[in-house]
Design a protein around this nucleic acid. Sequence first.
DNA 1: GGGCAGGCATCGA
DNA 2: TCGATGCCTGCC
Length: 287
Amino acid sequence: MRYIAQENTIQLFEVEDFKPEQTFGCGQCFRWDIQPDGSWFGIAGGEALRLCSTPEGAVFHCTEEKFRQVWARYFDCGRDYAEIRRSLSEDSFGSRAAAFGAGIRILRQDPWETLCTFIFSQCNNIARIKGIVERFCSRFGAPFEADGRMCHAFPEPAEVALLEPEMLEPLRAGYRAEYIVRAARAVVSGEVDFDELSRLPTAELIRQLTQLRGVGEKVAHCTALFGFGKTDAFPIDVWIRRALSRYYADGFDPSIYGDSAGIVQQYMFHYIRNGIEGRQSADGIPD
DNA sequence: GGGCAGGCATCGA
DNA sequence: TCGATGCCTGCC
C-alpha cells in the first residue's frame, strides 16, 4: 500500500480494498461515525482520527508518525485483500459475498476494548451497542481533545476493576455489566494477560477467553479476530449459521480458508445483513 | 402486553 | 451432549 505524506495528512493511493463505509459498517467496530461533511471520525483506544474516503483510496488526517505507529497497523495495511477475494473464485457464496464486501478491512483493535465491546454485543444490535460503548467511554474513559472536539479514550481495565456492576447501570447494558467488571478484575489480577494471550495459537487463545464469565465461543472468536488479529478465527452467530446451513448443506469447515477464514466471515456477514434488497429469501439471506 | 434480538450460563434429561 | 429457560434493555 503506497501513500504520500503531506503536512498532517497521509494520502493512500492505488488501494483496491479500502472503503471506510464498508469497513466501519460491517459490525466489527462501534466508535466510528460519518460526519456531516462525509468524512469519518473515530476513536480507537486512546487515539482519534478523521478519515476521508477518496476515489483513489483515503486521506488520513494525522502525522506520518501516527500513521506508521498506529493507523497502518489498525487498518491492516499490510494485507492484500484483493488477493484474498480472488482466491474465493471457486466458492460460489463466498465469492459473491467478497465481491459485495470489497473494501472491507479487518481492523486490528485493542484486545481489551474488543473483548468489552463484544461482551456488550450479545443479544444486541449495532445501534444499541454503540450507545452502550459511548456511555461507557464518556463516563469512565480519560478525556482528551482531538480534531477540535472533546473525546474519551476507552476505559482502562484498572479503572473498571474498581467499579461495582451497579455503577454501570447508566450504560443500560443490563446483565452484561457484571461480565465487564469481572473481566476488568481478571486483567488487573493478572489472571488475564493480553501479551501472553497474543502469543497463543488461535484455538488456545479462544479456549482461554471462554474461561471468562460471559464470554462464549462467539465473543471469543470476535475478540480473537478483531482484537488479536487472529484471522483464522471464524465467529458463528445466528446469521452466519443460517447462511452456512443453506449454502454449505454438506458441511462447512472454516479451516479451508486457512488464515483468511475470519476475513471471509466478515464478507459473508456483511453480505447477509446488507445484501441487495429484493434478492432475499424469507429468512433475509440474499440468494 | 408479549415476542424477540448479532449470546451466555445453568439446569435437567 | 443437547434443549429449554432466564437474563437487562429496547423496539416492534
